[in-house]
């Protein structure tokens, strides 16, 4: 439909602008091709100065190309230059076709204000009222949407702030945990370290005893009157002590290090924070620890 009407509109606007002086707004009836629903209804009266005419031509070209919003603006500028009310009607049509209801309403209102006695003024006023109502509704909806958008933005910002606060609080707790290690860990670790030290000492004693034994028994063969059993007992006892203290001490140290990072149990009053134990048997010693991290 628009393609069919565009040549007619062009012909009408060009012929009118070139052959006729600008007509007053009340001459709208003279436009034999006026159609309030289509581009052919564009008003051309009063385009008597060059600038306005150029604007009109640009607007006309834009309209033909389907750039209705830009066409509407050019019609309004042509109106500002020429004060031809028909240009407002043209702007109304262009804005209407662009779907820009507020601008179309404004242009139509301007037209009716300039041409209150236009031939179809009553019809146009009814349309204007309908359009104004729709604009009002649209503005209200937009306002409501804007309000919702602002509300959502505020909510998102609040959530982000809460998350940042939670992270900061966790980091603060972690720093606090790191700085406040479980003192039981120091105690157990110290005991383990002392055991390892004792193991080293026992190992040195054992090595010394064995060295003495090697001196007395070259080639690991001892004289008949040598009390080998007693010497073996001394070496083996020291070796056993070294074994137990070294490995047991190492185990206790590991437990101590683990205890250092155990929480103190303040978060849960029902459960004990840590339970540690140690036992020795024929197969060796064992240390255990239970707790919550």
């Amino acid at each position: 439909m628009r393609r069919l009407l565009a040549p007619l509109l062009t012909l009408a606007l060009t012929a009118t602008a070139a052959a006729q002086p600008a007509a007053p707004a009340g001459d709208a009836s003279e436009d034999e091709e006026y159609d309030p629903q289509g581009p052919a209804a564009l008003r051309t009266q009063g385009l008597d100065d060059e600038q306005a005419r150029l604007r009109f031509q640009v607007a006309q070209r834009l309209y033909e190309q389907g750039q209705f919003e830009e066409a509407g603006r050019e019609f309004e500028r042509a109106y500002d230059l020429s004060q031809r009310s028909s240009l407002l009607f043209n702007a109304y049509l262009a804005y209407r076709d662009a779907g820009l209801l507020p601008q179309a309403t404004r242009a139509l209102a301007g037209y009716l204000e300039a041409e209150p006695d236009a031939e179809n003024a009553a019809q146009l006023r009814n349309r204007l009222r309908s359009m104004e109502a729709r604009v009002t509704e649209q503005e209200a909806a937009e306002a409501e949407a804007e309000a919702e958008r602002l509300r959502l933005e505020a909510e998102a910002q609040r959530l982000e702030e809460e998350r940042a606060a939670a992270i900061a609080a966790q980091e603060a707790r972690d720093r606090e945990d790191a700085q406040s290690l479980n003192p039981l860990g120091y105690i157990v670790g110290g005991v383990g370290l002392a055991m390892v030290g004792g193991g080293v000492a026992a190992g040195v004693i054992s090595s010394g005893e064995r060295s003495d034994l090697e001196d007395a028994c070259p080639g690991n063969v001892c004289p008949v009157d040598f009390d080998l059993a007693a010497s073996q007992d001394r070496v083996n006892a020291a070796s056993l002590a070294a074994d137990v203290l070294l490995f047991g001490g190492a185990a206790v140290m590991v437990v101590g290090v683990g205890l250092l990072f155990l929480r103190s149990g303040e978060d849960d009053e029902d459960a004990p924070s840590t339970v540690a134990g140690a036992a020795c048997g024929p197969a060796g010693c064992m240390a255990t620890v239970q707790g919550r991290f």
């Binding site: 034994l213 001892c222 080998l228």
Partner: peptide, 9 residues
């Protein structure tokens, strides 16, 4: 760590 079981009379 050590022992003396390898000694004999």
């Amino acid at each position: 760590v050590n022992d003396a079981d390898d000694f004999v009379i």
